[in-house]
Amino acid sequence: MYRLNVLYNQPTDPAAFDEYYFNTHIPLARKIPGLRHVSISKTEGLDGSTPDIYLVTTLDFDSKEAFGAGLGSPEGKATAADVPNFATGGVTMLGAELVTEDFN
């Protein structure tokens, strides 16, 4: 499995970010061919402070090849092109081969 980890920094207007992200951006992303799963997490500082990262999204694909094909598709390109429309705090994207161990 191949995973795209997207780390969104604190936006200038969190309410506007959330509105756009959940109602416009995520519906675009869900159309990317080969996308198997999306996980979205809002962060919080363990000490009560505001972390630099506001939101973390993971997008899972069957393989690195499926990831490349998905992001290279018209839907993937449209989703990538949409990021500057709402990510006012900046964003970091990291691709990763998923390595897990079953702890159950």
Rank of each mutant, 00 (worst) to 15 (best):
M1I: 09
Y2T: 05
L4V: 13
N5M: 09
V6H: 02
N9M: 13
P14W: 09
A15V: 09
A15D: 13
A15P: 08
A15S: 12
A16E: 08
F17C: 01
F17S: 00
D18W: 07
D18K: 08
D18G: 03
E19N: 12
E19V: 11
F22P: 10
F22K: 15
N23H: 14
T24C: 09
H25C: 02
H25T: 07
I26F: 04
I26K: 01
I26C: 02
A29H: 05
A29C: 13
R30N: 12
R30S: 11
I32T: 03
G34F: 01
L35K: 00
L35N: 02
R36G: 14
H37W: 11
V38N: 05
V38G: 02
S41V: 15
S41C: 14
K42P: 11
T43S: 09
T43N: 07
E44S: 15
E44N: 14
G45F: 08
G45A: 04
L46S: 12
D47E: 13
G48A: 02
S49F: 09
S49I: 08
T50C: 07
P51N: 07
D52R: 13
D52Y: 11
I53P: 04
L55K: 04
L55P: 04
V56R: 10
T57S: 12
L59I: 14
L59S: 09
D60P: 08
D62V: 08
S63V: 05
G68P: 13
G70R: 00
G72P: 06
E75S: 03
A78H: 06
A87E: 06
T88Q: 03
T88V: 02
G89T: 06
G90R: 03
L94S: 08
G95W: 00
L98D: 13
N104R: 11
N104I: 12
